[in-house]
């Protein structure tokens, strides 16, 4: 998940991705509320898990979101006032992948509301990133590592 090569990215790129992610997660939440549309929620949620995996493995600058950002959004913006390291958002995509995988595991284990709960958790994180520029996964790296080192 991590590479030694330090690469710098426009910080507005991951934020743009987080905006799309949070909208799609809201759609998942809405679809998962009705058992008739639950299969649709599952498909969209799986797509989101795949997108999180792309971001976590390849980095946030090689996702479809980043492609759209570069082609359509960035040409209309001023140059960024600063660049940021690509590692934190990539790590956060991994956290997003982890949360969506928990939801999918619960769903296929028979707990169909797992999708709703995981989508709510992921939505809050993506929304905080998009609206408040708070990278929850990054912020909590030390907490997450302490929890994982106990097991």
């Amino acid at each position: 998940m991590t590479t030694n090569k330090k690469s710098e990215i426009d910080p507005r790129g991951p934020r743009f991705g987080a905006t799309i992610t949070s909208v799609l997660l809201l759609v998942v939440i809405w679809l998962s509320l009705d058992s008739a549309s639950l299969p649709a929620a599952l498909i969209l949620f799986e797509v989101l898990a795949f997108l999180f995996a792309l971001g976590a493995v390849l980095g946030t600058s090689r996702t479809p979101y980043a492609f759209i950002f570069r082609k359509l959004i960035r040409p209309r913006l001023k140059p960024p006032s600063y660049l940021e390291d690509s590692k934190p958002p990539q790590f956060a995509q991994g956290v997003g992948l982890f949360v969506t995988l928990i939801g999918l595991t619960l769903y296929f284990g028979g707990v169909t509301s797992g999708i709703l709960f995981a989508a709510v958790a992921a939505f809050i994180a993506a929304f905080l990133n998009a609206a408040f520029n708070l990278c929850l996964g990054c912020q909590l790296y030390l907490v997450l590592r302490r929890l994982s080192s106990r097991n």
Partner: peptide
């Protein structure tokens, strides 16, 4: 309804964090 609660919770969480 649920969407509204989730959105409100997210905005509140962000506001508390900012403070």
């Amino acid at each position: 309804m649920v969407i509204g609660i989730v959105l409100t919770a997210a905005v509140l969480a962000g506001a508390v964090w900012l403070i």
